[in-house]
Structures are given as structure tokens and as C-alpha cells.
Nucleic acid binder design. Structure first.
Length: 139
DNA sequence: CGCTTGACCGGAA
DNA sequence: ATTCCGGCCAAGC
């Protein structure tokens, strides 16, 4: 049961980067949360989309321009994902005043980003927020 | 072309 | 609490 027609990677990447550019200083968001703001392509149902969208966000972040606050994207466990430059990512977040617990986790209740305002979302054809059907319950 | 690897997630064990 | 595993995509080599 694959995807009869995967989303246009370029368009998806553009959505991801646009959202990342709006993340507030001192806050973080997750791959999941970003995926939930992007409307699933019409040929995919929600379940199909949710199963892979977070990974697509990760792939888009691999090519993220340096002038965006890429360090503010972490995984759904509240941790920095294994990736080249992970140490630098933690440094940047600590410089923004974000605290990590002894297991390297960020408390999303405190530092989680609320997303862009609704007006901006509407202008850019994005959803304010949607919990993925596979979203993990945190804390 | 065919393989291999991967900035993920959630459920099962 | 932790580790393991299926998902079966997309990019890179």
C-alpha cells in the first residue's frame, strides 16, 4: 500500500521552511507539529500522510537554509535528533535560554511553540494546528 | 539502474 | 521506565 502519488518534495520543503522561519526565539517545535500544519496532498488520506510526514519534515530540514532557526526543530520526545551538528544545535538552544533535563530532553510544556497566528496560517494555506492521528502523548 | 541509509513516530514487548 | 520494530518513502551513492 504505497503512495499512489507522493507529495511534490519541492513544495513540501517550501512549506516546512516557511514554518521554521516563524518559530519564536526561545521556543521549539517538533517534526510532528510542523507536519500537522501542512495540509495533506489531496491524493493522500490522513493516515497515509501522518505515517510519513514527520520523516519528510526531517528530510526537508536536512537541506534547510542556514539563515533559518533550524535549531528550534526537535523530535517528539523533546530531544535533539541524532544528526551531524547535534552538539551545535544544543549550544544554540541553550544560548536562547532553553534548559535541558538530565536526559537531554526539553520540556515541551514550557518551551513548546504555539505556532504562527491564525491570520498568517490562512494567508499561507497552512493549518494552525492538527494533532497527527499517530501523535504521541507527551508528559 | 539497484542497493543502502535515514534530522521519525507510535505501538508492542 | 526502556528497547525493539514495522512502516515501505526519498535521496544519495
Amino acid at each position: 500500500m504505497g503512495f499512489s502519488s507522493p507529495p511534490d518534495p519541492k513544495q513540501f520543503q517550501t512549506f516546512v521552511w516557511k514554518i521554521v522561519s516563524k518559530i519564536s526565539p526561545g521556543k521549539v517545535t517538533t517534526y510532528c507539529q510542523i507536519a500537522g500544519m501542512i495540509p495533506p496532498p489531496g491524493n493522500l488520506n490522513l493516515k497515509e500522510y501522518d505515517a510519513f510526514a514527520a520523516r519528510w519534515v526531517g528530510m526537508a530540514m536536512a537541506h534547510c537554509p542556514d539563515d533559518l532557526p533550524w535549531q528550534r526543530v526537535i523530535n517528539s520526545q523533546g530531544k535533539i535528533s541524532a544528526r551531524p551538528g547535534a552538539n551545535r544545535q544544543r549550544e544554540l538552544l541553550e544560548e536562547e535560554g532553553i534548559l535541558f533535563d538530565d536526559k537531554g530532553r526539553i520540556n515541551l510544556e514550557i518551551y513548546g511553540w504555539d505556532g504562527p497566528d491564525e491570520e498568517w496560517c490562512a494567508e499561507h494555506s497552512l493549518l494552525k494546528s492538527r494533532s497527527l492521528s499517530r501523535q504521541r502523548k507527551l508528559f
